[in-house]
């Protein structure tokens, strides 16, 4: 709180990164873009396929932005992020299918369960100073365990056969006759996520994460609890991913382990964040806008040769890491003004 007051002074040299650096054109631009996004499904007579691509973009933008919090801000590269998408999806779906509990409540339940699991796994991993690589390994293991368990307990989860969700048109059941509604729901989830990420970047907690990412030892010397910063980031990302997971299950009305929590989904999430620039609150969104249409195109081009699209993903990932490890928005880091705007 203290530094907020201090830095809000006009002459302050300690301006917090943010959109105010861009002035009114930025706000105008944002307003136009948001109105455009909102109007897209209704104003133009678009095929539902394109609405669907829009939904996928916002879905992955949400996940990429959430990953940016733990991977970009806090520098903890969670390779098993899809596990939390799966936890969210399966929690709400199983509650709905087995106990007839509304997926809206399931949404909250999935978020809480994700938070719990992230805390239980994250605490010891961070506590024992397992940094960087080991955290990544731990999250791979977590992702695979949850995948295997879901596949194995097929009496409850439907195993690899999956479970179709029962369809009862009822907004209270997260189900709508007009499928365009899903577009607006994911819009809300996405915009909230970006907003959280933006606010976080400007907050004390956000600075603590960045400090920890850069140098844990120096961060501790600044009075920052390294454990708390990492754990906060990990849990926050997990909770958002779970919410997106519930949404996705309701949207496609079918759930199996490989749709929501395969390693491939985790990779997609990372790729989205890395391509856009994982340190920026806009990175996940930019990455999704580019990558999702491309992936749709690749997948439909190579239908007779499955695997080609993911192999190309591999190539993109390698090339990106070799030549542009900071992603597209990372190119702005050298301009003080733009750096503030994109919140690098």
């Amino acid at each position: 709180m203290r530094n907020k007051k201090a830095t809000s002074e006009a002459s302050s040299i300690l301006t917090i990164p943010g959109l105010q650096s861009a002035g009114w054109p930025a706000f105008l631009g944002i307003a136009v873009i948001l109105i455009g996004i909102l109007a897209f499904p209704v104003a133009f007579d678009v095929r539902f396929y394109f609405v669907q691509v829009g939904i996928l973009i916002m879905f992955y933008a949400t996940l990429g932005t959430a990953w940016g919090i733990v991977g970009g801000y806090a520098g903890q590269h969670s390779i098993g992020q899809a596990a939390f998408v799966g936890i969210g999806a399966y929690t709400s779906t199983l509650l709905y299918m087995k106990l007839d509990i509304s997926p809206w409540i399931g949404l909250i339940a999935g978020m809480l369960l994700s938070a719990l699991i992230a805390a239980v796994i994250g605490y010891p991993l961070f506590r024992y100073g397992l940094k960087g690589d080991y955290f990544a390994l731990g999250t791979v293991a977590l992702g695979l365990i949850i995948f295997e368990i879901t596949t194995s307990f097929s009496t409850i989860t439907g195993g690899s056969q999956g479970i179709p969700l029962k369809y009862e048109e009822n907004p209270l059941n997260f189900q709508f006759p007009n499928r365009t509604v899903y577009y607006y729901i994911i819009f809300i989830i996405w915009i909230l996520t970006v907003f959280i990420s933006y606010k976080l970047r400007r907050s004390r907690a956000g600075f603590e994460m960045l400090a920890v990412r850069d140098d844990e030892i120096a961060a501790a010397r600044g009075g920052i609890s390294v454990l708390k910063a990492k754990l906060t980031a990990f849990i926050l990302a997990a909770v958002i991913s779970a919410a997106a997971g519930t949404f996705f299950a309701q949207f496609i009305l079918f759930l199996d382990p490989s749709t929501v929590m395969s390693l491939g989904i985790s990779v997609q999430i990372i790729l989205v964040a890395v391509l856009g620039g994982m340190n920026s609150y806009l990175g996940g969104t930019l990455g999704a806008i580019i990558l999702i249409p491309v992936s749709q195109l690749l997948a439909s081009t190579f239908t007779e040769r499955p695997g080609t699209d993911i192999a190309l993903y591999g190539v993109i990932l390698i090339v990106l890491m070799l030549f542009m490890p900071n992603g597209i928005l990372g190119l702005f880091r050298n301009s003080p003004k733009w750096r503030k705007i994109v919140g690098w």
Binding site: I13, A211, D214
Partner: peptide
């Protein structure tokens, strides 16, 4: 030890 990826401010 400073935070190399942050600005001076």
């Amino acid at each position: 030890r400073i935070f190399r990826n942050l600005t001076v401010a």
